[in-house]
């Protein structure tokens, strides 16, 4: 059976390092990659009436943009290398979504880069890596 590795990917350099690290492990272990891109979203945020009206339209545009700019190039590259990769795009909180996908896919590991956020922001609101360490259902690898 193929072992699945969930990778959190936002197009940043650290995320790319995490992905490369995961791909190296997957290739050795004959595993596959579940590439997860999370669009940060809280259902408890405050919007103006115009934002409410356009939300459905904007969501579609955001998905298309993320697909084209973040996911498509890397998927194409990995597929060309012969890596088995499944793309996933979702709205929500990054750590929660990564855990949820890991459960749904029965993945064996989660890989993320260490923080795109500033140190202060991470200290105040907590980092994705920090949250994963506490809540992940499977082992986590945090790539510096």
């Amino acid at each position: 059976m193929l072992e699945k590795f969930v990778v959190g990917y936002d197009g940043s350099e650290t995320a790319r390092r995490a992905l490369d690290f995961a791909v190296a492990r997957a290739t050795v272990q004959n595993g596959s990659i579940v590439l997860v891109h999370v669009l940060e979203w809280s259902p408890y945020s405050f919007l103006t009436p115009t934002e409410l009206e356009e939300r459905h339209m904007r969501r579609r545009q955001e998905m298309e943009r993320a697909e084209a700019a973040v996911m498509a190039p890397v998927i194409k590259e990995l597929t060309a290398q012969g890596v088995n990769v499944t793309p996933v795009m979702r709205y929500g909180k990054t750590a929660d979504i990564l855990c949820a996908v890991a459960r749904e896919e029965s993945a064996v590991q989660i890989f993320v880069g260490r923080e795109g956020h500033s140190a202060l922001e991470a200290r105040l609101f907590g980092s994705v890596a920090g949250a994963l360490v506490q809540t992940a259902p499977v082992p986590c690898t945090i790539v510096p």
Partner: peptide, 21 residues
């Protein structure tokens, strides 16, 4: 709320906006 609909207008958001008026 269906998690699949994350990113769409939630009940909370509609209520909050109406309240601000």
């Amino acid at each position: 709320s269906d998690p699949k609909n994350a990113g769409e207008v939630s009940h909370f958001q509609a209520l909050a906006t109406a309240l601000s008026g």
